[in-house]
Measured scan of single mutants.
Amino acid sequence: DETGKFLVLALYDYQEKSPREVTMKKGDILTLLNSTNKDWWKVEVNGRQGFVPAAYVKFL
């Protein structure tokens, strides 16, 4: 149950560059965990948590 969690859509592919980031593919649906930083949002994708560039995702 994803109640209270926001979902975001990956607009572009992103390859993680550090262990704190996660890789996503364009079209992936991600669970948004934290968006307090304007540049990097914490998400969960494929069972992994990490950061992606905020400009690469949008709210569903």
Rank of each mutant, 00 (worst) to 15 (best):
D1R: 01
E2I: 14
E2C: 09
T3N: 14
T3P: 12
T3E: 12
T3S: 15
T3R: 04
G4F: 12
G4A: 12
G4E: 13
G4W: 10
K5M: 12
K5N: 11
K5C: 08
F6M: 15
F6Q: 14
F6D: 09
F6W: 13
F6K: 14
F6A: 14
L7Y: 15
L7V: 09
V8F: 06
V8H: 04
V8Q: 01
V8S: 03
L9R: 08
L9F: 11
L9G: 03
A10D: 00
A10Q: 01
L11H: 04
L11N: 04
L11R: 06
Y12K: 13
Y12C: 09
Y12R: 13
Y12N: 09
D13L: 02
D13H: 04
D13K: 02
D13T: 05
D13S: 08
Y14C: 02
Q15H: 15
Q15D: 14
Q15E: 15
E16M: 12
E16G: 14
K17N: 12
K17A: 11
K17M: 12
S18G: 14
S18C: 08
S18L: 10
S18P: 04
P19G: 09
P19A: 10
P19E: 14
P19Q: 11
P19N: 11
P19Y: 08
P19R: 06
R20I: 14
R20M: 12
R20G: 15
R20P: 06
E21V: 04
V22R: 02
V22M: 10
V22Y: 03
V22L: 12
V22W: 05
V22S: 02
V22E: 00
T23E: 04
T23N: 07
T23G: 10
T23Q: 04
T23S: 15
M24L: 10
M24T: 03
M24E: 00
K25F: 08
K26C: 06
K26R: 13
K26I: 05
K26N: 04
K26D: 02
G27F: 04
G27Y: 04
G27L: 02
G27N: 07
G27Q: 02
D28E: 13
D28Q: 12
I29V: 13
I29S: 04
L30N: 00
L30S: 02
T31D: 05
T31V: 15
L32R: 01
L32D: 00
L32V: 10
L33C: 06
N34D: 15
S35M: 14
S35A: 15
S35L: 08
S35F: 10
T36M: 12
T36C: 10
N37R: 10
N37I: 06
N37D: 12
K38D: 11
D39S: 11
D39T: 14
W40C: 05
W40K: 02
W40F: 08
W40N: 01
W40P: 00
W41T: 04
W41G: 00
W41A: 05
W41Q: 01
K42H: 12
K42Y: 15
V43R: 00
V43N: 00
V43H: 00
E44N: 06
E44I: 07
E44Q: 11
E44H: 05
E44G: 06
E44R: 07
V45K: 10
V45Y: 11
V45T: 12
V45C: 08
N46C: 08
N46W: 07
N46L: 07
N46M: 08
G47I: 02
G47L: 05
G47T: 05
G47C: 05
G47P: 01
R48H: 09
Q49P: 07
Q49K: 10
G50Y: 02
G50R: 01
G50M: 04
F51S: 03
V52A: 04
V52C: 04
V52S: 01
P53S: 02
P53H: 02
A54P: 04
A55S: 12
A55N: 14
A55K: 13
Y56S: 12
Y56P: 00
Y56M: 12
Y56E: 02
Y56H: 07
Y56C: 08
V57S: 01
V57Y: 01
V57H: 00
V57A: 02
K58V: 15
K58E: 14
K58I: 15
K58P: 01
K58G: 12
K58F: 10
L60P: 06
L60S: 06
L60Q: 07
L60E: 08
